[in-house]
Structures are given as structure tokens and as C-alpha cells.
Design a protein around this nucleic acid. Structure first.
Lengths: 133, 133
DNA sequence: GATAAAAACAGTAATCATTACTGATTTGAG
DNA sequence: CTCAAATCAGTAATGATTACTGTTTTTATC
């Protein structure tokens, strides 16, 4: 067995399981520190990467140069809010048709797709309604 | 008129128009230097960002932390090759249905989607066939 | 429970893409 | 031609992430 148990890794994983916020490494660090005050930021990065490689968590690249992490590894899409910048889940079965469709239009071989949506999240929609009223 | 013509900007734009390679800023810099040896990397970044803001070119964020640029601003998708890392065009009309579909499954408002595909490009497929033979 | 090698850690330095700054040069409207 | 605005070259700064180093934890084996 190569992998060893560590409190730090467990705390990181626990925090990620407890939130739907798709936090960045920095955010994970901030929260985990409350329970484990002298954990290192490097440890957070190392473990998030390790867990992602093992497939225990998902790394989300939303294109803004800051990675986010998600303990929910089931197939689902994400929506980034153009107002608050938050990332929320979109419960929708993966549209494999578009991979097949793409493959028919491509001289090479297409194996999958990465999609994220943008728009305004429920919370920000509500806020806007208040402002207009 | 706020915008002024500059040789540097023109050379950058010309190079981008001449290639289908979706180069990174660094690659643009390397090529543009041949024609304009003492151009600054900062100038390349500044102009690529400016042209992208004006809508003259497109900035492609493929999730690996390195931006690429495309002079073809028409609606089309991109494929990143998992073997050579290259990015190629996929001529396929945008599937707006998935935005609508997503919107029906989301409590907020969804305005668009960003999708890229991954697989093996035509060039690398060919190479593999040779190796197997 | 003791022990020792492997794994992991904390803290810090390094990397890499990108952006910001500064003083000099270029552009274009009048 | 002139001059303010735009742009530049060169360099420093930023910010996310990774790598390094010497110390501490974990766990298989006794």
C-alpha cells in the first residue's frame, strides 16, 4: 500500500464533502484552517491534486485560471454566475449526442467534451428582482 | 478616435490571420519577432487582449492555464488533441439547444455555454496507425 | 508497545502566465 | 509641422500553483 492516512487529507476531504460551493484551493485552505490552524497551503494543493487524480473528487477548470474542486464526482454540468462569480450545479444528464455529432464532423477521433454554462444564478436573479421593484 | 494604428498591432494581427494553429501569446511572440525583432512580449499580450476585447479575435481558454488566440471569430468549436496538445477547429454549427435545455433544468437564468472537445487529431491518428502497422 | 522505512507535512522558494508600471517613441488630427 | 494621446520596450510585480527541504506522522513488522 502506497497511500497513507493523514488527518490533513481527511479534513480537506471532509470539508469538500460538506459544501456545494465548488471552492478554490484558497477557499478550502481558509475553511480547513479553522479546524486545523497550522495546515499548510501546499498541503491543501497537494491533497486536492492527489484526490483528483485518484478520482475521489473533481477538478473544475472554469477558464479563469483558478481551479475549483467538487466532491460530487457524478456526471453533471456547472453554471458560472456572471454576477457573483459563483459556480453552481446543473442537474442534467450528460449530452453524449454532441460528442457523437462532433465526431462525425471531425477528421480525427473525438472522445469527449467539456462544457460549462454561464448565466445568472437563482440568488442573483432574486436580488435583481428586488432592485427593480 | 481613441485607437491608433501601430505597426506592432498590425504585425500581430497579420500573423494571427495567417495561421490556423490557435497560438498562445508566447507562440505569437516567437513568430512576430522574426519580422519585428525587438517587439516586446508585453506588447503582444496587450494587443491580443485589446483585439479580443474589440471582438476582432477570439481568446480561447482551454483550461490548461494558457490562453490561445484565434483570428476566426465565426461560431465554431475547438478540439484539443490529447496526444500532441494541439488545438484544431471543428466546423459544426453551435448547438443552442443545449443552452435551452440547460435553462429548463436550472432555477436561475442560463445565457450560453462554452464547450470544447478532446480526442486525437487527424495527424496523431495517422501516426498511431503507422506505429501499429 | 517499540522501531524503522515510507509517506506526508509545514514552511518557503521557485515557476509560469499574465498584468502593471515607467519613461521613451510613434501616431495622427488640426 | 506640432503636440497631445496612444503606444511601445523593458522591466517589475502579481497570483495561482508547484517544487524543495528538513521534520513529523503513519503503519507494517517485530
Amino acid at each position: 500500500m502506497a497511500l497513507k492516512y493523514s488527518r490533513q487529507r481527511q479534513v480537506i476531504r471532509d470539508y469538500l464533502m460538506s459544501t456545494k460551493e465548488h471552492p478554490t484551493a484558497e477557499t478550502v485552505y481558509a475553511h480547513v484552517r479553522k479546524k486545523y490552524p497550522n495546515i499548510s497551503l501546499g498541503t491543501v494543493y497537494r491533497n486536492l491534486s492527489l484526490l483528483a487524480e485518484l478520482g475521489d473528487i473533481r477538478r473544475l477548470r472554469m477558464g479563469d485560471g483558478v481551479d475549483r474542486f467538487d466532491a460530487d464526482t457524478s456526471a453533471h454540468y456547472h453554471v458560472v454566475c456572471t454576477e457573483c462569480g459563483g459556480v453552481s450545479d446543473l442537474k442534467m444528464e450528460p449530452i453524449n449526442r454532441i460528442t457523437e455529432l462532433a465526431d462525425r464532423n471531425y477528421p480525427g477521433r473525438i472522445e469527449g467534451h467539456i462544457t460549462y454554462f454561464y448565466g445568472v444564478c437563482a440568488g442573483c436573479c432574486g436580488k435583481n428582482r428586488e432592485k427593480r421593484a
